[in-house]
Computed example of a mutant assay.
Amino acid sequence: MPLSEEELRLLEQMERALVEEDPKLASTLRGTAFRRAARRRAIIAGACFVLGVVVLMTGAVASITAVGVVGFVIMLASATIALTAMRGPHGSAAADPRASGHPSHGSFTVIDGGRAGRTRRPRRTASHGSFMDRMEDRWRRRREEGGW
């Protein structure tokens, strides 16, 4: 039985309150089911990779090119699946708009961990002159300040 609009709204409010009060707990609760499924996918993909190696080697020993190619394709597909499973939810979040982490979609939000406030120094551009010009300017300033 699906939830009514009011029940969905109340559930979203409770999720937001949980994230605000205890973000660590919310992150832990959000990630356990995904990690279990990702681990299972990675193990199955590893077994398929070994099967692909066996098929590839069988094709090579029997000198049957088609069997070797099929083994390689099995290895490639299983390696791709294993890597996407190990990469985490960020790899598939762009493809699925429901997995964006927005509270209105029924999932918890991701806590940035304080990196949002950090800024980088702007890089110098060519308009400030070349490296040698800057070094000459520094040398002149040192001589003027030092009284040489």
Results as ranks from 00 to 15, higher is better:
residue 14 M to I: 10
residue 63 S to N: 11
residue 23 P to K: 14
residue 40 R to P: 05
residue 104 S to I: 11
residue 53 V to H: 08
residue 115 R to N: 13
residue 98 R to S: 02
residue 124 R to I: 11
residue 41 R to G: 04
residue 148 W to S: 07
residue 109 T to G: 02
residue 77 A to L: 07
residue 114 G to R: 10
residue 119 T to N: 02
residue 148 W to H: 03
residue 29 L to I: 01
residue 91 G to H: 09
residue 140 R to C: 11
residue 19 V to F: 15
residue 136 E to R: 12
residue 125 T to P: 01
residue 74 I to D: 12
residue 144 E to C: 04
residue 13 Q to T: 09
residue 75 M to Y: 05
residue 24 K to G: 13
residue 56 L to I: 00
residue 104 S to M: 12
residue 72 F to W: 14
residue 25 L to P: 00
residue 107 S to P: 02
residue 69 V to M: 14
residue 43 I to T: 03
residue 61 V to G: 01
residue 126 A to M: 05
residue 146 G to Q: 02
residue 59 G to W: 00
residue 56 L to S: 10
residue 11 L to A: 06
residue 130 S to H: 01
residue 29 L to R: 03
residue 86 M to S: 13
residue 51 L to R: 00
residue 16 R to K: 14
residue 29 L to W: 00
residue 93 A to G: 08
residue 22 D to F: 08
residue 90 H to T: 12
residue 121 R to A: 07
residue 84 T to N: 07
residue 146 G to H: 05
residue 19 V to M: 03
residue 1 M to L: 09
residue 100 S to F: 09
residue 43 I to E: 00
residue 22 D to M: 07
residue 122 P to G: 06
residue 74 I to K: 13
residue 61 V to E: 05
residue 30 R to A: 10
residue 61 V to P: 00
residue 72 F to D: 08
residue 142 R to F: 01
residue 4 S to V: 00
residue 10 L to S: 01
residue 141 R to M: 01
residue 133 D to Q: 13
residue 30 R to C: 01
residue 66 A to I: 11
residue 111 I to H: 06
residue 105 H to W: 07
residue 10 L to A: 07
residue 39 R to D: 04
residue 66 A to W: 08
residue 145 E to Q: 11
residue 27 S to P: 11
residue 65 T to W: 06
residue 147 G to H: 02
residue 73 V to D: 03
residue 12 E to Y: 09
residue 132 M to L: 05
residue 48 C to T: 01
residue 28 T to G: 13
residue 145 E to V: 13
residue 143 R to L: 10
residue 128 H to A: 10
residue 137 D to M: 06
residue 39 R to Q: 05
residue 86 M to G: 04
residue 127 S to K: 15
residue 93 A to L: 14
residue 39 R to P: 12
residue 83 L to P: 04
residue 94 A to P: 07
residue 46 G to D: 01
residue 118 R to H: 14
residue 117 G to H: 08
residue 14 M to G: 05
residue 7 E to V: 12
residue 80 T to Q: 14
residue 31 G to V: 07
residue 102 H to V: 09
residue 34 F to T: 04
residue 90 H to W: 05
residue 53 V to E: 04
residue 24 K to E: 04
residue 9 R to M: 10
residue 26 A to E: 10
residue 74 I to W: 03
residue 133 D to C: 15
residue 137 D to R: 02
residue 108 F to M: 13
residue 50 V to H: 00
residue 57 M to S: 06
residue 133 D to T: 14
residue 33 A to W: 14
residue 104 S to Q: 10
residue 28 T to W: 07
residue 134 R to G: 11
residue 66 A to C: 05
residue 95 A to C: 15
residue 146 G to S: 01
residue 97 P to Y: 09
residue 148 W to K: 14
residue 92 S to D: 07
residue 43 I to K: 14
residue 147 G to D: 01
residue 24 K to M: 07
residue 45 A to N: 00
residue 107 S to H: 02
residue 99 A to D: 09
residue 72 F to N: 12
residue 111 I to K: 02
residue 43 I to F: 15
residue 90 H to R: 06
residue 135 M to R: 08
residue 108 F to T: 03
residue 92 S to K: 09
residue 6 E to P: 14
residue 124 R to D: 09
residue 51 L to Y: 00
residue 95 A to F: 13
residue 66 A to Y: 07
residue 8 L to W: 02
residue 50 V to R: 00
residue 82 A to V: 05
residue 81 I to A: 00
residue 27 S to H: 10
residue 15 E to Y: 05
residue 116 A to I: 11
residue 129 G to Q: 02
residue 109 T to K: 12
